[in-house]
């Protein structure tokens, strides 16, 4: 198999006396969707926050494209090309689509914002993802539906030439049609060569979109499976702890 874009080994994180991550390993590959599943409180969001640099791990090794790296700030992560689409959408509702997509890294010319180029690139990116539901890139985010907001958040990571995109429950708040749209978008993202990690509670969605499934159980990675070689019942077993990887996987 190819070298993973990201490879975590023995990652730990504690909050005071509570060990939330107890030596976790995780890999994600270019062009593949890796689903991260686990019950509430398993430590999924904590694992992701470490990758985003917003909440560094206590110990463990992070390899990016084969090289050991440090992720101490969001800037470290974004410089490497790691982008996170958060569960609680990190968009400014008072700003429009272009302003959100370029937030924190606006195109400048003569010391002023270069709106025209940003508009053009935003529209191009959305079109590249075959987004059709957005009328104008100058629409305020407050006027968009939940699915459209997810679309904008995902498009933002594409615009930034992300190598690894992490989506924390991107479909949790969406209806059926919008979920379908976002899953399509996730697939297109991977097909474009990006490594995708998606967190979801919806196993139907995961079996639709993921290539690999990694199961986190109480801070430990209990299973890393290929989607085509496993089934719903097994995954549920790992998530609830009624099934264990070693010995039960023959």
């Amino acid at each position: 198999m190819d070298m993973p874009v990201i490879e975590l080994t023995g990652v730990t994180k504690s909050f005071g006396p509570v060990d939330v991550l107890k030596g976790v390993g995780l890999s994600a590959y270019a062009g593949k969707v890796t689903a991260l599943v686990g019950d509430n409180g398993a430590g999924k969001s904590t694992l992701i926050k470490g990758l985003a640099g917003v909440q560094p791990y206590d110990s463990g090794e992070i390899k990016f494209a084969g090289n050991v790296v440090n992720l101490h700030t969001p800037r470290d992560a974004s410089l490497l090309g790691i982008e996170v689409v958060y569960q609680d959408l990190a968009l400014c509702e008072n700003l429009d689509i272009v302003q959100n997509m370029f937030l924190g890294r606006e195109d400048m010319k003569h010391g002023t914002l270069y709106e025209g180029v940003m508009e053009r690139e935003a529209a191009k990116t959305l079109q590249g993802l075959s987004v059709r539901t957005v009328k104008s890139v100058r629409q305020k985010v407050s006027s968009l539906s939940g699915g459209q907001r997810q679309t904008v958040a995902i498009a933002r990571s594409v615009l930034r030439n992300a190598k690894l995109v992490i989506l924390d429950e991107p479909t949790a708040a969406l209806g059926v049609a919008q979920t379908e749209q976002v899953l399509h978008l996730v697939r297109r993202l991977a097909d474009a060569g990006v490594a995708v990690i998606i967190i979801s509670h919806n196993l139907v969605d995961i079996f639709k979109v993921a290539d690999y499934i990694s199961v986190l159980y109480l801070g430990q990675m209990v299973a890393s499976l290929e989607t085509t070689k496993t089934n719903n019942a097994d995954v549920v077993g790992y998530i609830t702890g009624s099934k264990t990887y070693i010995g039960d996987n023959s």
Binding site: A52, V84, Y86, D88, L103, G104
Partner: peptide, 8 residues
């Protein structure tokens, strides 16, 4: 929070 995550 969105601004912070965007690196501002």
């Amino acid at each position: 929070e969105a601004a912070r995550r965007a690196g501002i």
